[in-house]
């Protein structure tokens, strides 16, 4: 039942009392909308509401950016081991530095206080106090700060059982208490609360899972979204710059 077209059936309005409840004759109920109002509603071309619409999707983007920043899988991995020691069968690297390029040839870098590798399974590297910078598709750079992460080269996964925050220089941030990231499958799953913020909007959820490299995001266990349309519009007007359609007609 599509009811979107219904406003356009405008007919010349009969004259009727301005307010108060009354019924106007009409064989069967047709949608009669005052002509001036209908035309007023249309005059702003791209309807003002559309321009300052609630960009729920922008918030979803905050979730997606978390996934994307992790899942832009590094192509080349260079490991710089400034000093390596072997202690009780474990390879301990101090201040490892990892640099590489993402699939779109943008540099990323990661440093950690320590990296520990069990001699018996060199595919798994445990990293502590991680700081990373990962380029985002929209040109911003995401800083990642995680207390501890376990990177498995074989399964191409990263497991975090400790808090991790991602933030970008334009005010986006995502805080996880834990996360399992599968770079191969392009998924990120956290069973614990997650908090996402962009300027003017935030999502808090009990848990979250991201699939298909951010194309599908599910927030669960009670979701709360707070939106500040004023700030959101300011943000959009800012980056929309000249191309904001219809200009800023403030009624």
């Amino acid at each position: 039942m599509s009811n979107t077209a219904m406003v356009d059936q405008t007919q010349a309005p009969q004259n009727r009392a301005a307010s108060g409840l009354h019924s106007s004759a009409g064989a069967q109920p047709t949608e009669r909308v005052d002509a001036q109002f209908a035309s007023a509603a249309r005059h702003s071309g791209r309807v003002r509401l559309l321009k300052i619409a609630l960009p729920l999707a922008a918030l979803a983007m905050a979730g997606a950016f978390a996934a994307y920043s992790f899942l832009s899988s590094p192509v080349a991995i260079g490991f710089d081991l400034s000093s390596t020691a072997i202690r009780d069968g474990k390879l301990v690297m101090a201040a490892p530095k990892l640099e590489g390029y993402t699939t779109d040839n943008l540099p990323y870098a990661m440093t950690a206080a320590r990296a520990v590798q069990d001699a018996s399974n060199t595919n798994v590297i445990e990293l502590e106090d991680i700081d990373a910078t990962v380029p985002m598709t929209d040109g911003t750079v995401a800083k990642i700060d995680a207390r501890k992460a376990i990177y498995d080269r074989l399964s191409n996964t990263i497991m975090l059982n400790d808090p991790m925050t991602l933030s970008t220089d334009d005010g986006k941030s995502a805080t996880f208490q834990s996360a399992n990231i599968d770079m191969g499958k392009g998924t990120l799953v956290t069973e614990q609360p997650v908090v996402l913020r962009i300027k003017g909007a935030s999502i808090d959820a009990g848990k979250m899972s991201i699939a298909e490299n951010g194309k599908v995001i599910v927030f669960d266990n009670r979701v709360q979204m707070n939106l500040d349309p004023g700030q959101l519009n300011a943000g959009r007007a800012g980056n929309a710059g000249s191309q904001s359609p219809g200009g800023q007609s403030n009624e």
Binding site: G63, A64, I203, F219, D220, R222, V223, Q224, L227
Partner: peptide
């Protein structure tokens, strides 16, 4: 906005 679940 609050809900049990949100899927984007």
């Amino acid at each position: 906005i609050e809900s049990d679940k949100l899927e984007v």
